[in-house]
Write a protein that binds this DNA or RNA. Structure first.
Lengths: 365, 365
DNA sequence: GGCATGTTTGCAAGCGCTTTCCTATTGACC
DNA sequence: GGTCAATAGGAAAGCGCTTGCAAACATGCC
């Protein structure tokens, strides 16, 4: 067949040329109407839009990506294998997709097990404009790749060395503080934090010590007695830790648990030790809502704002795509939800101290 | 600037032309090495591959999609909003991504709330070659769109009218049968199925009646007394239903529960009615593994093979992309996992009939 | 009237790839 | 030696879009 003779097009595909012809304008005009990159008279614009509508035109993503060097797709790298707490992951993914769509981007789903090579692949093939990586590990092999990739990226979770990267996460410092302030506001004057297992602190994963520090600092500011300690995850360890704790501080009336696995054990052990929740002791958890809601009694908790993290991650990525400066780390404020595991000020057994602190400060968030 | 003069390229992007130059061959040769669409001498091929490797070349996805009319991306439409059982959804998504990657495709994540227009958009923009839609409703507004779309699709879940579509799902018929056969194999001679709430049967959602039919048919084949009935979800309704059931059939020793919400109530009600699980009565659930594992005692259960559904969905889609014929419906075999809620043959209270049926048939799956 | 200025639109050169033609080389067979 | 077929590789035409350049026209001002 002779080259260059325009044959009747394949039935399904409507191209920008079809639209231009139909509207009686040049192809470029259609393009500009769509991109808004130059002013088009109201008249022409309306005509073009009408043609687009009647023909049911959708620009070819590949062609657009080729010509504009933008795919309008972002990659979302998720640890789909398991381990992660699913509801959190889901909320996060939903927020990312929704936010991305709101700014005219789609989301390519990539599993973490594709590893560094996977990131390189999707970036180098210009499949995506940017990358959001969830569940970043402390010494993640991917961060080296991300750092020298030509595409921008946003990490969820703080790696050991975040220099040159953009990170979003919950502000665990303030989460700890929120718990302390909330309990102080309820009138509690002796509180404690049970944290992650000791090993987590040893390998200095950022979130654990930061929560502890925030908790202690806030308590000190409010003039409240506070201790914080790691907590192993077995029922027996929890029981022992609580026994020792209550032995040392019989007036303890507020407890923060930042350890998802230990939560149930704590709730089981307290009644056995003669402390009713919340009458004798208030318990605040730092955990997903689901865990808090399912506990008995449902727990007042500070939750990881997965949705907001997702939204922020996309926003930050978009700003990087537009070459706007972004802060290296964005830490999100904790949200405390009141449920049935906390009550105002200590009851009778510790009544001796009950009047010392004014109650009534509103919860954080 | 004068057009057509090859300026030094933008630093990051390695193109096929660079590879061709480096290997001393034509661009087309590189392309053919990559696609394998024509024979290349071993020598040339090796040289090209070496160049690709040293230059770190990755073909530009957009350019490839434009020229080849294939994006090598499939869309995965998920009901991310909630409602769905997350572990199942996650397993499914993971299987889809993994399988897709194994056949050199990526996955675009689309939320169900983009609706029919969203499907049209991603299809018409040639962003994806095919679409997998999860959680299809009985009268889904999207199936009309899918049907006249130029791109192939695979549905998870059976819509009312599946004509012209490709569907994958668990074979609920066989799931019901598997339960009956398993209980029969354990020596039980009087068994019952508690199904979904009545309303589900009324609106003839396919899965519920099919499970029931399979259960009854298999029981009849094995010469086992069986009844099946809908089951409401409140604790009180469950208790009443069980009471009535045990009243009518005091020798009942096998129970199948196909109702996620009622499972816990059944387990609570049975001891109250003087039946220990599994000593007096064996219970099999049709539910996600998670629910079965968390129950007390952990339940022998038939689970939805989410992973296999995902894998099959991708395989079917690939076959459609290659214009190979595929069956309109692919129903996957159930998998029964034995846990602690079932025991061999009826115990003492029904000893009168205990010798009637030989025990020992292996569980299904 | 002539020139600078502004507004609106068209022209056409690619973006990086696939694929259709086509040429060159080789070996086999008559 | 000549014809044919098979095998390897190259040249170049698009795929559908964006965007730099410039034309066309109107307007304002001297």
């Amino acid at each position: 067949m002779p080259r260059g003779r325009p044959e009747p097009k394949r039935a399904d595909m409507v191209t920008i040329a079809d639209v231009a012809r139909h509207a009686g304008v040049a192809v470029s005009t259609v393009s500009y109407v769509l991109s808004g990159k130059r002013t088009i008279s109201a008249d022409t614009r309306a005509r073009v839009l009408a043609s687009i509508h009647t023909l049911g035109y959708h620009p070819h993503a590949g062609a657009r990506a080729l010509a504009s060097r933008r795919s309008n797709v972002i990659a979302l790298v998720l640890p789909l294998r398991s381990g992660m707490h699913l509801p959190v992951l889901m909320q996060f993914a939903t927020a990312v997709v929704t936010t991305a769509r709101a700014v005219d981007h789609d989301v390519l789903l990539v599993t973490a097990d594709e590893g560094p090579a996977g990131l390189r692949r999707i970036a180098a093939s210009a499949m995506v404009d940017g990358i959001i990586v969830m569940d970043v590990e402390l010494h993640d092999r991917r961060i080296a790749v991300l750092r020298d990739l030509e595409r921008p990226s946003v990490l969820i979770g703080l790696p050991a060395d975040a220099a040159g990267l953009t990170v979003v996460d919950l502000d665990f410092d303030r989460a700890g503080a929120a718990c302390a302030e909330y309990l102080a506001g309820l009138g509690h004057t002796s509180i404690a934090l049970l944290g992650a297992p000791a090993v987590v602190y040893e390998r200095n994963t950022a979130f654990a010590p930061r929560t502890m520090a925030g908790f202690l600092a806030a308590a000190r500011l409010r003039g409240v007695d506070a201790v914080a300690q790691p907590c192993e995850e077995s029922a027996e360890d929890v029981r022992q830790a609580l026994t020792a704790l209550l032995d040392r501080r019989p007036d303890l009336s507020g407890l923060v648990v930042h350890n998802e696995a230990a939560v149930a054990h704590v709730l089981a052990a307290l009644p056995a030790l003669g402390r009713r929740v919340p009458q004798d002791i208030s318990v605040v958890a730092i955990c997903p809502d689901e865990v808090a809601e399912r506990a008995l009694p449902p727990l007042t908790s500070v939750l990881i704002p997965a949705e907001e993290v997702g939204t922020q991650a996309v926003r930050l990525l978009m700003r990087k795509l537009m070459d706007e400066p972004v802060p290296p780390a964005t830490l999100l404020g904790p949200r405390l939800t009141t449920r049935s595991s906390t009550a105002a000020r200590p009851p009778a057994p510790v009544a001796a101290r009950a009047a010392a602190v004014p109650a009534g400060r509103a919860p954080v968030g």
